[in-house]
Design a protein around this nucleic acid. Structure first.
Lengths: 212, 212
DNA sequence: GTCTATACGATGATAGAC
DNA sequence: GTCTATCATCGTATAGAC
């Protein structure tokens, strides 16, 4: 049992429990029990419960945002070279696709996705401020790219539609399974690709609509 | 100070704090302090913290759902009498409009809307189960009406799109003010009517889209 | 440097005496 | 209705074993 093993196990257990029960409803004791570690190990490795949350978010959000950023940059370079503007769908895909793909990647990443989904729903929570520190640059560039891709939509209306899209996406992120009401004739099993396209069908239609 | 005054003040204070900080992050002490009541008054009037939450949700959700139900029934009767099918926009409006209108009604109802928005983001929380008890019949009828209004959309796809719409709506409900990033040239002040129509523009486009 | 055992002070929800 | 006591549990700190 090396240091990294214990540290990893604590991260994984906390990620799981924070996602399932929420930050405040999860005790350090339940985390260390699940991680088969001593209670004091959290303080030794991370300093505090809050810093533990920060480590959890940083660990996966940093590489995820690098992928998103890379895909967005590649898209913008390609369209600029071709003298065209990117489609709204392609811009949104650079954000949505890496997100939903990460969830199916295993090793606890599905817990991270759910945790972020919850975080987006707690505007003044501590998790939100940690999260936003990592997101602000990318979000600004995303908004700019969407503005470019939708010349017919005012920035005012665009802002709200982006807001709606983030609401949808965060809902999808946190409600992977256990839908409250699923009619018997509806299946919720889908591949990443199906999931992404179904979401984009919805989101892009809402983003592009011209008010009649 | 009569009994009902104390009970109301506790309900109002708890509604406010639960909406702002979340159920678990709110202590009974902070509630009774804000309500200028004794700590034990919560237990006297409601029995427990959980029952207090239940009372908060029941108090406003019951009349809200009656309004929604009434508008949906009226719409369905009207279209049936005319031998037509209701539009997706009109069906959604019976749900969305009373919601956003309640928020502007004052006397703490804006806190309730935010609280429900948060509740929808905590799939296995205790608030969700309380909430769902009040919502299930209406949600089933809403899904049925949407199915009627969108004959070209399979129940499978419809389910997901309804899921996306609820994600958007719950996000709007909990993030009334304090958006994380608001560009300087964007105003977030709107009337209820503007807000409803802007949301429906987005949601209906997503609901009606035919996959190419 | 890693990890454990244990204790501390604060705060949680609740219940019984009044 | 209120006051106070109770008891569990919280996050954190420390002292020392490996």
């Amino acid at each position: 049992m090396s240091q990294t093993d214990t540290k990893q196990r604590i991260l994984d257990a906390a990620e799981h429990l924070f996602a399932r029960d929420g930050y405040h409803a999860t005790s350090l004791r339940s985390i260390t029990t699940e991680a088969e570690a001593n209670l004091a190990a959290v303080n030794y490795h991370f300093g505090s419960k809050e810093s533990l949350l920060e480590a959890i978010i940083d660990r996966r959000l940093r590489p995820l945002n690098q992928i998103r950023q890379g895909q967005l940059d590649a898209l913008l370079q390609k369209t600029e070279a071709a003298g065209t503007i990117p489609s709204c769908r392609d811009v949104l895909r650079t954000f949505v696709e890496p997100t939903l793909r990460l969830r199916k990647q295993g090793s606890g990443s599905e817990n991270f996705i759910a945790l972020i989904g919850r975080t987006l729903a707690e505007p003044q929570g501590i998790a939100m401020s940690i999260f936003m520190r990592n997101m602000e640059p990318l979000l600004a560039r995303l908004f700019q790219a969407l503005n470019l891709s939708l010349p017919g939509v005012s920035r005012q209306v665009l802002f709200w539609r982006v807001h709606f899209v983030f609401g949808s996406l965060s809902h999808v992120m946190r409600c992977h399974e256990r839908h409250s009401i699923v009619p018997e004739d509806v299946s919720i099993d889908m591949s990443v690709e199906e999931e992404v396209e179904l979401f984009l069908d919805f989101a892009v239609a809402g983003m592009e609509v011209k008010k009649q």
